[in-house]
Computed example of a mutant assay.
Amino acid sequence: MDIELSYDRAGRLCAIGGTEISYKRRDKRPRTLGSWSIEYQRFSSLLSAVGGVEITYRRWSSLPRTVGQWSCEHSRSGAQLLRIGPHDLRYDPHGGNVCGVGPLEIFYGEHGSSPIRSQLPGRGDSLSDELLLMLFLTLFWQEQTREAREAYYQARR
């Protein structure tokens, strides 16, 4: 099954397959994923919940510790998220982009810019809620990391 990843004019991810992602006007932070509301920690851009699934972080860090009942595993350096519960994350060895979450594969546009589609082996009509959440979180956290890296390099110029 192919899952198209759509973007709005501002370059924000606005749909995963048939599931819309909404934003407040001029806000980079998503507010809903389909019918699920997205909540953030107070005075922060860290997700605290998507729908009824709570997200916790390591103390004084933006590294996710749990997603609902699942624990998260990171590389020793903390630079890469390796697993969310039963779902392994796979990375492109050249660009460092996430190229897979569990059974999902993620494909990027030219020059590895933005993810443009995902693929789930086999045939199906829709993405399960669990895999939709894992794909959204992975893409969201990857974008946050990219933005933080860009801000760091801009500040050093």
Rank of each mutant, 00 (worst) to 15 (best):
residue 105 E to Y: 06
residue 97 N to W: 11
residue 33 L to T: 09
residue 37 S to M: 09
residue 103 P to M: 10
residue 119 Q to H: 12
residue 140 F to A: 03
residue 62 S to Q: 15
residue 81 L to F: 13
residue 54 E to D: 07
residue 125 D to T: 05
residue 80 Q to Y: 15
residue 85 G to H: 07
residue 111 H to W: 06
residue 132 L to E: 10
residue 129 D to R: 08
residue 137 L to W: 08
residue 56 T to A: 04
residue 157 R to Y: 10
residue 57 Y to Q: 10
residue 98 V to M: 13
residue 99 C to V: 15
residue 27 D to V: 05
residue 9 R to I: 04
residue 114 S to C: 14
residue 69 Q to Y: 01
residue 137 L to N: 00
residue 124 G to H: 08
residue 27 D to S: 15
residue 24 K to G: 01
residue 75 S to H: 05
residue 47 L to S: 00
residue 118 S to R: 00
residue 104 L to K: 00
residue 78 G to D: 07
residue 45 S to N: 11
residue 50 V to Q: 07
residue 143 E to T: 04
residue 145 T to M: 03
residue 25 R to I: 04
residue 58 R to S: 13
residue 135 L to G: 10
residue 99 C to P: 01
residue 16 I to S: 00
residue 157 R to G: 11
residue 19 T to N: 06
residue 81 L to R: 02
residue 77 S to Y: 02
residue 47 L to I: 15
residue 122 G to S: 12
residue 98 V to E: 13
residue 94 H to T: 14
residue 99 C to I: 12
residue 63 L to F: 10
residue 41 Q to G: 00
residue 128 S to W: 14
residue 64 P to F: 14
residue 103 P to A: 03
residue 44 S to M: 08
residue 113 S to H: 12
residue 78 G to L: 07
residue 85 G to E: 05
residue 72 C to D: 12
residue 101 V to Q: 02
residue 51 G to L: 06
residue 151 A to F: 04
residue 47 L to M: 03
residue 153 Y to K: 09
residue 79 A to G: 07
residue 6 S to F: 02
residue 79 A to K: 13
residue 134 M to W: 08
residue 54 E to V: 06
residue 108 Y to L: 05
residue 18 G to K: 09
residue 26 R to P: 06
residue 138 T to G: 03
residue 148 A to D: 09
residue 16 I to C: 07
residue 4 E to P: 10
residue 139 L to Q: 02
residue 79 A to F: 03
residue 24 K to Y: 06
residue 99 C to E: 15
residue 72 C to R: 06
residue 95 G to M: 14
residue 111 H to N: 14
residue 133 L to S: 07
residue 143 E to P: 05
residue 16 I to F: 11
residue 71 S to Y: 11
residue 6 S to Q: 13
residue 29 R to C: 01
residue 24 K to T: 02
residue 32 T to H: 02
